[in-house]
């Protein structure tokens, strides 16, 4: 079962520079595990230590944001296209509040 996955610039260091890779899995979580077996470290950039989809990325299945499809539990089918984009966000908001939104991992990353 082949699912096309579009990789954003910032994560292409994990795919040897490839913009599109293929993977397999019945759910988004399975797909990311499969991808990580060939592109080690990729899953860690998309999924937090707590096992949730990272706040800093948007993942889409075909034309839908996976946050509306069950996030990591989103079901996948052969021929689906998965797109990963960096979430674009920010603002003057204080760091403590931002960290509360983004989780502890964000706090570590920003130091």
């Amino acid at each position: 079962m082949a699912i096309e996955v579009r990789i954003p610039t910032i994560l292409r260091s994990y795919t040897g520079g490839a913009k599109v890779v293929e993977g397999a899995g019945d759910t988004l979580s399975d797909l990311l595990t499969d991808l990580d077996s060939r592109h080690a470290g990729l899953k860690g950039r998309l999924v937090t230590d707590a096992g949730a989809l990272h706040r800093f990325v948007n993942v889409y299945v075909n034309d839908e944001d996976v946050r509306f499809l069950g996030a990591l539990d989103a079901k996948l089918n052969d021929g689906d296209s998965v797109t990963i984009l960096p979430a674009v966000a920010g603002g003057a908001f204080g760091f403590a509040a931002a960290a509360a939104i983004a989780g502890h991992r964000a706090a570590v990353a920003a130091r």
């Binding site: 610039t9 910032i10 920010g90 003057a92 760091f95 931002a98």
Partner: peptide, 27 residues
């Protein structure tokens, strides 16, 4: 490609906040 990504700060200086830095995903 996105050559410029812009936003406004409406009460503070035009310098990236820590939030901006945490999210910046287009190198």
């Amino acid at each position: 490609e996105p050559v410029v990504i812009y936003h406004s700060h409406t009460a503070t200086e035009a310098y990236p906040s820590r939030t901006d830095i945490s999210f910046a995903g287009e190198p």
